[in-house]
Design a protein around this nucleic acid. Structure first.
Lengths: 199, 199, 199, 199
DNA sequence: GATGAATGAGCTTTCATTCAT
DNA sequence: TATGAATGAAAGCTCATTCAT
C-alpha cells in the first residue's frame, strides 16, 4: 500500500483517481462474472477507459488481481483493528467474528484469495507479491492472536489458527452452497464454534 | 463439405483402458492447471489421443470433471464406511478423521471439489450432475452424523457439519501453504479440534 | 491465463475501409460457398485480416450476413423507387421488371436471400434481424403494389405477389441452369408473363 | 434407377432393404435438421447401422443426397404420369398442379434440389450425376408439355416453363415464410395463376 | 462385409497483450 | 501518455472419412 501524497490539485489526483476507478471496475466485474469470466476489455470499459490505459498502470491481469487482494486484506486489517479496539470484552471473539463476517459479505474477495493461492498459472505468484500477501495475512493473524491473549486465553496462537480455519471452512462450504444442502446456517455455526472454542 | 484424410497415429486401445487413460490424464491436468485452465486438447495429448477420441467417450469437459469427482466421492464413501465399521470406539471421531485424512492425502481431489466455487460457467453445473454430487456428499454427511449418534453424542448433525467444516478449512489453509506460514500443523490442529469438539 | 505476443502483420486501416473490405470478402465467400460453407476464417483471410479484426466489427456470422442482405434490399428499394417514379406509363410493369432485373444481374444477392431457406440454424434468424429483413421486403412489396394500383389495375396486391413469385421462380431456375436446360430465356419469359398478367 | 431383381429369398433382399433403410433415415434426418445439420453419424444411427455400413453402400454424403434427389424426381414423375393419365380434362392444369402439390408437401425435397444445384462444394456435382438429374427433370418437363399440348393449347413448351417457374417461385416464397408475410396463400395463388395462364 | 474408434482439420468465438498512431 | 485496432493462439466441440480388426 503506497501512501499517496497529492501535490497541489492539478495532475497527481486525476492519475490516482483513474487507478482507483480501474480497481473498482475490476472488483465489480469479478463480482458479476467470476474471476475467469472477467476480461481486461470489460474491466477497461467499466472503468470508462481503454485497455491501453489499464496496461499503463498495471502490468497485466495478475497485478490487478494482486492489487485488489492486497487492498482487501488491508481493509480487513482496518476493520479488524477497529473491531478489536472498540470491543468491551471478548476481544478474541470479536476479532474472529469480524474475520468471518468480512468474507461472508465479500465472497469475491475470498475467492480471489483462494484463487491466487492456487496460482494463476504454472509459475505461480511473483515472489514479491507472495511475500507481500503473506505479510498482510500474518498481520491479521497476529491481531487475532493478540486479541485472544488479551482475553487471558491460553494457547492464543493455536486458537487463532483454529478459529480462522473454522471460518474459512464454513465460508467455503457456504459459498459452494454445501451448507444449505446440509441444512446448516453459516452464521449460527460460527457462533456455536466460538461459544465452544473460546471458553 | 470438408474432407479429411485420417493418418494412422495412435492405435486403437481396449475401450476400458483408453477411458481410464483419459480420466487419468484429466486428473493430472485438472490438478496442474485447475478446472478452467485445463483444456480438452491438453487432456487428449496427455492421454495420447486426439480430442475426437475424448469426445467419443465423454460429452465434454463437464462430464469428465463429473466422472472424476463422482469417483472421488465414491472412494471416500467406501473408506468412510470401512473406517466407521471397524472402529472399536469413538466412531464419530474416526469418521471425521477419515474425511480429513482422505483429502489431506489427495490434494487434487479436494481442489476438484472446491473448483465448484468458481463455478464452471454462468449457471453452474448441469442440474443432473449437481444432484448427483449433492447426493454423494449427503451420503457422506449422513454416515458421519450416524457415527456421531452411535457414540451417544447430542446434536450429531451440527457436530458433523462443524467437523467437516473445520476439516475443510484446515485443508484449504494447508493446501494453500497458509498453515505453514502460521507455523501450524494440519494433523495436530485436527486432532486438537476433535478432542475439544467431541467431548 | 493465456499469453499472446502479437506480431505486426497487416497494418491498421481506416476504419471504414476495413469494414468495407470485410463485407466485400464476405459477399465473395458467401457467393462461392453458401452461407453454411462460408467460414469466418476464410472471410477474414480474404479480407486480409485476422478473425479477431472481423469480430471487432461484427458480432458474428449472422450479423455479417444481415448487413449484406440489408444493404442489398436497400439498394433494390432505391432502384425500385427511381424506376417507378420515372416511368411514364405501366409503372407496375416497370416495378416488377426492375425487381427481376436487379436479381438477374446480382446472382449473389438472390442466393443470399434464398439461403434463408435452409435457415442458419434451428430457430432461424435472430428475431430482430428477421423483423428488419421482413420490413425491408414488405416495403418493396408495397412499392410494387402501389405502382400496380396507380396503373388502375384491380387486385394489385395479388398481382404484386404473383409477379414477384414468378420473378423468383424464373431467377431460381435461371441461376441453377435449369432454364437453359429447358431451352428458355429468363428475360423473354418474364416479359411474356408481364404481358399476360398485367392486362 | 437400377431395377432390382431379387434372387430367391436369402441374401439379395436384406442388402436392398438396408440400402432403403439408410435412404429413409437420411430423408428423415434431412427433414429434421436441415441439409447441413445432418451428419453421417446421425444418419447411420437412425438407420440402425454404423457409418462404415453407410460408406460401403454410398461413396459419401453427396451420393446420398443424389440418390435421394433422384428417387424424389422419380416419385414425382410417377405421380405426374398417373395424374395426367387419369385427368378427364385440363390435363395440363392437372400436371402443373401435381408438380406444385408434390413439392408443397415435401419441402425437404425441394430444398435438396435447390441445394444440389448450388453445388455441395467448389467442385459442384459429378458430371454423371448432373446428367442424370437433368434427364429426370427434362422428362418431367416433357410430360407437362405434352399434357398442355393434349389440351390443345398453343406454345405448350413456354406454358410448361412458365407454370413450373411460377410454382417454384411460390414454393420458395412459401417455404421461406415470405408468402405469409405478404398475407398470401400458396395454394390460392397457384390456382389463380393456372386460371389465368391456361385460358 | 461390417464395425466403430480414431483422426485431425475444421468450425465459431474469446481474449491478454502489443504498438503504430 | 492514451488510444483501440490488430494479433493469433487458444478454447470447446463437430464431423466426413478411413481402416485395423
Amino acid at each position: 500500500m503506497t501512501e499517496q501524497t497529492p501535490v497541489s490539485g492539478t495532475q497527481a489526483l486525476p492519475e490516482d483517481r483513474r487507478r482507483r476507478e480501474i480497481l473498482a471496475a475490476a472488483r465489480r466485474v469479478f463480482e458479476e462474472r467470476g474471476l475467469d469470466g472477467a476480461s481486461m476489455r470489460l474491466i477497461a470499459r467499466q472503468a470508462g477507459c481503454t485497455t491501453g490505459a489499464v496496461y499503463s498502470r498495471f502490468t497485466g491481469k495478475e497485478e490487478l488481481y494482486a492489487e485488489i487482494l492486497t487492498a482487501s486484506l488491508s481493509r480487513l486489517q482496518q476493520e479488524l483493528d477497529r473491531a478489536v479496539r472498540t470491543a468491551d470484552g471478548g476481544r478474541g471473539r470479536v476479532g474472529l467474528h469480524c474475520f468471518f463476517r468480512y468474507y461472508l459479505e465479500r465472497p469475491t474477495e475470498l475467492a480471489l484469495g483462494l484463487y491466487l493461492y492456487q496460482g494463476p498459472g504454472p509459475g505461480g505468484l511473483t515472489p514479491t507479491l507472495d511475500r507481500q500477501l503473506n505479510a498482510a495475512l500474518l498481520e491479521i493473524y497476529r491481531t487475532i492472536t493478540q486479541a485472544l491473549a488479551d482475553d487471558g486465553l491460553d494457547r492464543p496462537r493455536s486458537r487463532a489458527t483454529a478459529g480462522m480455519a473454522h471460518a474459512v471452512g464454513l465460508l467455503v462450504l457456504h459459498q459452494t452452497r454445501r451448507l444449505k444442502l446440509l441444512n446448516a446456517d453459516a452464521d449460527r455455526q460460527m457462533d456455536a464454534y466460538l461459544d465452544m472454542a473460546l471458553r
